[in-house]
C-alpha cells in the first residue's frame, strides 16, 4: 500500500540523511574520482588541465610507472593471505569445535588482533620481524612476512566465521556417515566442506577484497622496500595522490584499475563457486 499525499514523503524523509551521505561518499565520489583520473591534478593547486587517457596510459604502459609491479605484488600478497586463511582459520575452527573446555576463552584470545588498530600491530611486528631473522630486509621474505602478519591478524575473525558455519551443519549427517564407515578425513571432505561452501566463499572473497587494499603495514613497516618488493597498489595510490605534487589524477587512474581488478577477481570467484546467496528483493 503506497500512501498518497504528503504521507508518501515520510519514508523518503527517513531515508534521506543516511542515503544521501552514503551516496555522496561512495557513488558520487566514484564519479569525482573518474573525472580526476582524466585530468592532471594537484591536491593543493587543483587541476592543471585535461589529460585524456594520459594517466591510464602511463599507469598501464609506461616503464617507470610500477603499476603492474604493484599489482603483481599485491596479487602475491592476496594469494598468500587467501591460502593462509584457509590453512589457519578453518583448522582452528575445527579444533575449537572439538575442544570441550575454554571455547569462549580461545575465541577471545584469537580475536584480539581484530580489535587492535593495524598501526599498533605493524609497529610491534616491525621489530618482531627484525628479531626473527631480519625478514623485512630481503625482497624474498618481506612480502611473505607481511602476509604472515595479515593471516595472523585475521585468524580469529575468520575462525569465528567458520565456527558459525560449522554449527549449522546438522549432526545427523555425521552420524549417518559414521554408520556407513566413513573416517574423519572422508567426513571432512564429503560433509564439512560442501556444507561450508557459502562460508568458504564468503571468507575467501572478503579476505581477497581486504588484502587487495593492504596499506597500513606497508606504510609503517617497509615503505615499499626492500627493492620495491612490498610496493602495493594502495601505497602507490597514496604516495601519488598526497605526497607527490601534481599526480592526483594519475593516482585516481591507478585506483580505478584496482577497482576493475578487484571486481573481476570477485566476479570470477562468485561465478566459479556459484554461491547460493540470495539478496532479499
Amino acid at each position: 500500500m503506497i500512501n498518497k499525499g504528503w504521507r508518501a514523503l515520510i519514508p523518503y524523509l527517513y531515508l534521506a540523511p543516511a542515503l544521501s551521505l552514503a551516496l555522496i561518499f561512495s557513488l558520487m565520489s566514484m564519479g569525482i574520482s573518474m573525472w580526476t583520473s582524466f585530468h592532471h591534478f594537484d591536491a593543493f593547486a587543483g587541476s592543471a588541465g585535461y589529460a585524456g587517457w594520459e594517466n591510464y596510459r602511463r599507469a598501464l604502459f609506461a616503464a617507470d610507472s610500477y603499476c603492474w609491479l604493484a599489482l603483481r605484488h599485491t596479487a602475491y600478497y592476496v594469494v598468500l593471505c587467501a591460502v593462509g586463511v584457509l590453512l589457519t582459520a578453518l583448522p582452528l575452527a575445527l579444533l575449537c569445535q572439538k575442544v570441550r573446555w575454554g571455547q569462549a576463552l580461545f575465541r577471545t584470545l584469537y580475536f584480539l588482533p581484530s580489535i587492535t588498530p593495524g598501526v599498533v600491530l605493524a609497529l610491534v611486528f616491525y621489530h618482531l620481524f627484525g628479531v626473527w631473522g631480519n625478514l623485512l630486509d630481503q625482497p624474498r621474505t618481506a612480502m611473505p612476512a607481511l602476509a604472515l602478519m595479515g593471516v595472523w591478524a585475521g585468524a580469529g575473525y575468520n575462525m569465528v566465521l567458520f565456527l558459525a558455519g560449522l554449527t549449522e551443519i546438522p549432526q545427523h549427517l555425521y552420524d549417518a556417515a559414521r554408520v556407513d564407515g566413513a573416517n574423519a578425513w572422508q567426513q571432512f571432505w564429503h560433509i564439512t566442506l560442501p556444507m561450508l561452501r557459502n562460508t568458504l566463499v564468503f571468507v575467501v572473497v572478503m579476505t581477497i577484497i581486504g588484502a587487495f587494499q593492504v596499506f597500513t603495514s606497508v606504510y609503517i613497516m617497509t615503505s615499499g622496500g626492500p627493492e620495491r618488493s612490498t610496493e602495493v597498489i594502495a601505497y602507490t595510490i597514496f604516495l601519488n595522490a598526497f605526497a607527490v605534487a601534481g599526480q592526483m589524477g594519475y593516482a585516481s587512474a591507478v585506483a580505478w584499475l584496482l577497482f576493475v581488478v578487484v571486481a573481476v577477481f570477485v566476479a570470477i570467484q562468485m561465478r566459479v563457486f556459484r554461491s547460493r546467496k540470495v539478496y532479499d528483493e
Binding site: 595522490a241 585506483a255 577497482f259
Partner: peptide, 10 residues
C-alpha cells in the same frame, strides 16, 4: 566499492 578507490575523491 573498495575504500582505496574512495580515498582521493572523498
Amino acid at each position: 566499492v573498495p575504500p582505496a578507490v574512495l580515498l582521493i575523491p572523498n
